[in-house]
């Protein structure tokens, strides 16, 4: 084992304890997931995959979570930049506000969002005058998802911007670039990896959201809501295949997004790379 090769056996009691405790945690994560996979037969999985309701809910979840992340990124990234680069009074309070959705119970967040988008709420009344209802609507779901997951994107992007050396931005300014050009050619590309990490985290968090979503929209059903519905109406055996399918799809999407985001970083560099 790598552990014992680097350290003498005699001093390894410490290493052994660390190893055992670490393994316990990993096992704790792995065991239920492995269990759910082993207990689901291939035929059950196939049948569930052909279930229209299940497929629709998974598509809806992916689509709404992605749209919410994508659209909110346009405002979240500038906010992240300001948090990384500017000093202003009550900055700590603003940071607290950004973190707030993470610490409040998600059902309570759902209630708050519902109040906001219901017909007498601020956003709801605007939508209503356009003949739209945000409740039980994918747009409402997107808002609920975004509300609870946006801190992940903002904080990760903020760390990314903060890690860009200020003198690179200064150098760009002295080389005649405008602030806008500095942002798009230096700050954004160099923070890109952290931004993409935040993007994936926000997407993942939004996708798996149940508490806030179920309050804003029981229908159309997102995958987490459907799993809950199958479980409460038919029991564990019926909820399990849906869960497995959702986990598989989610993992596939994350891997794909990771690959794309890394590719995208490279392609972001190449426009300046011709010779």
């Amino acid at each position: 084992m790598g552990f014992s090769r680097e350290q003498p056996v005699r001093g390894s009691l410490f290493s052994l304890i660390m190893l055992i405790l670490s393994s316990l945690v990993l096992l704790f994560i792995l065991a239920p997931l492995a269990g759910i996979f082993f207990e689901t037969s291939g035929s059950d999985l196939l049948e569930t995959a052909n279930d229209r309701e299940v497929r629709d809910s998974i598509w809806l979840t992916l689509l709404v979570a992605f749209s919410a992340t994508f659209l909110f990124a346009f405002a979240a990234i500038p906010l992240a930049w300001i948090m990384a680069r500017k000093e202003f009074p009550l900055k700590g309070l603003v940071q607290g506000l950004i973190d707030l959705p993470v610490v409040i119970p998600h059902t309570a967040a759902g209630i708050a969002v519902l109040g906001f988008i219901s017909r007498d709420g601020f956003l709801g009344s605007i939508a209503d005058s356009a003949g739209l209802s945000l409740i039980n609507n994918p747009a409402g779901i997107a808002l609920a998802m975004a509300f609870v997951s946006i801190p992940f994107l903002i904080n990760s992007a903020r760390d990314g911007f903060a890690s860009v050396p200020v003198r690179l931005e200064k150098a760009a300014l002295t080389l005649g670039a405008s602030h806008t050009r500095v942002f798009f050619t230096i700050s954004l590309p160099l923070a890109w990896k952290s931004i993409m990490t935040g993007f994936v985290m926000m997407f993942a968090r939004g996708m798996s959201e149940f508490g806030a979503v179920v309050i804003v929209a029981y229908h159309p059903m997102t995958a987490p809501v459907l799993i809950y519905e199958r479980f409460s109406s038919f029991g564990l055996d019926y909820a399990r295949p849906v869960s497995v399918l959702f986990i598989i799809v989610a993992l596939a999407v994350f891997i794909l997004l990771r690959l794309i985001s890394l590719k995208k970083k490279e392609s972001h560099i190449t426009p300046d790379a011709e010779t």
Binding site: A177, D272, A273
Partner: peptide, 23 residues
């Protein structure tokens, strides 16, 4: 700058072309 502040996300060409592109 003291540590040159060469943009790591661009080639040498991209770095030297940077101020010209700004113009």
């Amino acid at each position: 700058f003291q540590d040159f502040a060469i943009f790591p996300n661009m080639t040498v060409y991209g770095n030297i072309a940077y101020p010209l592109r700004s113009k």
